[in-house]
């Protein structure tokens, strides 16, 4: 059971990390890695397993973030109460977006999702009720523990770790179910999958909705940790791109791919930001561009695919061997 051993080692490191490296910077970094890992893992369900590259995933992220902050700013409730609302919103939106766009293939789907995300960002920016360009804030001083407003990053770290574990568990369960098999089949050949009875459109839509729900949770957690959300941090296209690159770098379609990607990219971004200050933000995205090119050119399967078993053509029987 080498798999199980690896899993326990990773889990042990994850649990021990903020206790061993306990400076506020390190703990905050750890929390951010986990947060992005949640978002990237959620993206992975539709982008990795189903092969539908959504570049507008930030739409669902924003739904969660705005729902969490909105429940405080508009109704005086704990941001926690916004999470179910955010999920409902994201899933509903996924259904509306998904039904027409999931029929589109490849780049067309990606383009459509970008368009929806940008439209959403513009709508929110011009909606006074949602704070327009300023955005919404969470509780400045926590009234009780349910406001989930902490000075230290430590509670966030463990909260995110738990949610990440749940996200990965859901993903794992999905990949081992009929739905996961169907998604992989549809990704390879939709026509063949349908001929074998796989309801392609419906399966992709379910994956998209599941992914949207989990992404909205990530958005809500993000807003809680930072205590506010504005159109850029909630619906900015660069968040979509970040999520996508993390999953692709680690390995899209692999359970732990997004986590690996987040563990590499988040520290990279944080360090470059702290070295270069505000000027560094632009450089980070230059770096992202370079990473996209490198992944596409040298390791389309992502870093983790380096460790999955290389399969050589096997010796065939008479039935299987080409003359």
């Amino acid at each position: 059971m080498p798999r199980l051993i690896w899993l326990s080692v990773v889990a042990a490191i994850a649990i021990a990390y903020p206790l061993l490296l306990s400076s506020p910077f390190q703990q905050r970094l750890g929390a951010l890695v986990l947060l992005y890992a949640i978002a990237a893992s959620a993206w992975n369900i539709v982008g990795g397993y189903a092969g539908q590259v959504s570049v507008g995933h930030v739409v669902f992220f924003g739904c969660g973030a705005y729902a969490a902050m909105g429940s405080y700013a508009k109704f005086g409730l704990s941001p926690l109460f916004g999470i179910p609302g955010g999920i409902v919103l994201a899933v509903g939106l996924a259904a509306i977006i998904g039904v027409p766009t999931l029929r589109l293939s490849g780049h067309y789907f990606s383009m459509a999702t970008i368009a929806v995300a940008e439209t959403m960002r513009l709508i929110v920016t011009n909606t006074d009720w949602l704070g327009a360009a300023v955005g919404l804030s969470g509780p400045t001083v926590p009234r009780n523990i349910f406001d989930l407003s902490f000075l230290s990053a430590l509670p966030y770290y463990y909260l995110f770790l738990a949610i990440l574990a749940i996200t990965l568990l859901i993903t794992w369960w999905m990949t081992n179910s009929r739905m996961g098999f169907y998604l992989r089949a549809i990704k390879d050949s939709e026509r063949a999958a349908r001929s074998l009875g796989a309801p392609a459109s419906r399966t992709k839509l379910y994956a998209y909705m599941l992914s949207a729900a989990l992404t909205s949770v990530a958005g809500a957690l993000y807003a809680m940790m930072f205590g506010f959300v504005d159109p850029e941090s909630g619906f900015g296209i660069l968040i979509s791109v970040k999520i996508l690159i993390m999953a692709a770098l680690g390995g899209a379609g692999l359970l732990f791919g997004p986590l690996v990607g987040a563990a590499i990219l988040v520290p990279l971004e944080e360090i470059s930001n702290s070295w270069l200050g505000g000027k560094g933000a632009g450089l980070t995205f230059v770096l992202y561009g370079a990473i996209i090119v490198l992944i596409a050119r040298f390791q389309p399967g992502g870093l983790l695919s380096l460790f999955t078993r290389r399969s050589k053509p096997t010796k065939d029987t008479g039935a299987g061997h080409a003359p």
Binding site: N176, S177, R178, F181, Y182, R184, A185, K187, D188, S189, R191, A192, A193, S195, L196, G197, A198
Partner: peptide
């Protein structure tokens, strides 16, 4: 139209899943 990313068995399981939702059974 082989499902390239799967094993031979998994390819056939896609067909079998039509009649059973359970992985073991498929």
């Amino acid at each position: 139209q082989t499902f390239e990313g799967m094993t031979v068995l998994e390819n056939v399981m896609i067909g079998a899943f039509l009649r059973t939702p359970h992985r073991k059974e498929a």
